[in-house]
């Protein structure tokens, strides 16, 4: 692969891995949702994200041209090769934490896909436009819950505040560009994430305040997802997700 193609390949892996890992995480709720309707809502979101992951990963495989399809990329890479952000590998915790993680990510994904719908790479633009419709809904759904839980009972409020304190330092990682992204910026294939950050902060802070939550003042942000530096949680989720295809590599069912 030439350098620019490799940069796009890595970029697509990042987009795909975010969908794949968050989709897999939310799938853990399947059959365990707080009640039937929300169980279905969470499963819907999970399926949307896994669908997005398939599209981005299969495009990545095409670009690479080594015969790796989306399944090969999903199931036969190790933790250090995963480029997803730290936020999406974070364990579900309680329903409030799952919702807040979804909210943080969906606000980000909406801004990102809006920009990418105008990418000079036509295929990436088309995939982003399709994903945009889905993440808009994910955002609205998690935002409505955030407002209700944050501003709900003392119990729901304290759980949301705890979730916020637990995850705030993971949000900065979303806006880390990869070094190779520069090649994509100059061709207007991708966009500097620093442009997105102020929009994300403005929207998120306003919603958190409306949900009567206190934003942590600690400015420390943990980073490294796109470079393959992950929390231990990623290895565990990969073990569960990859065990079957690795045990029976050509298995069909």
């Amino acid at each position: 692969m030439e350098v620019k193609q490799k940069a796009l390949f890595d970029y697509l892996l990042w987009l795909g891995d975010n969908g794949l890992i968050l989709g897999q995480r939310i799938a853990e709720w399947c059959g365990h949702g707080p009640y039937l309707e929300e169980d279905i809502a969470l499963t819907n979101i999970s399926l949307d994200l896994i669908g997005q992951a398939r599209a981005f990963l299969s495009y990545a495989g095409e670009l690479e041209g080594k015969g790796r399809d989306e399944d090969k990329l999903a199931f036969f890479r190790n933790d250090r090769e995963f480029k997803n952000n730290l936020l999406v590998e974070e364990p579900n915790g309680d329903f409030g934490k799952t919702i807040l993680r979804q909210y943080f990510f969906s606000v980000f994904a909406e801004l990102l896909f809006e920009k990418l719908s105008a990418s000079n790479d036509e295929k990436l633009a088309a995939l982003a436009a399709k994903s945009l419709k889905e993440v808009k809904y994910h955002k609205v759904h998690s935002q409505k819950w955030l407002l209700r839980l944050g501003d709900g009972t003392p119990e729901s409020h304290s759980r949301m505040q705890a979730a916020l304190n637990e995850m705030w330092h993971l949000t900065g990682d979303l806006f880390e560009n990869a070094e190779s992204d520069n090649l994509l910026f100059s061709e207007r294939i991708a966009f500097d994430l620093a442009e997105t950050k102020p929009h994300w902060s403005k929207e998120v802070i306003s919603d958190l305040l409306e949900a009567s939550l206190q934003i942590p003042t600690n400015a420390f942000m943990l980073k490294g997802g796109r470079n393959g530096f992950h929390s231990e949680h990623l290895s565990h989720i990969l073990t569960e997700m990859q065990a079957l295809p690795r045990a029976i590599p050509e298995g069909k069912w």
Binding site: Y35, L36, E37, E38, I40, A41, N44, V140, H141, K144, W145, R148
Partner: peptide
Amino acid sequence: HASDSEMALQNARDV
């Protein structure tokens, strides 16, 4: 089931 009508619309959409 839903906490209010806005959430009921969301749930109805999903279900």
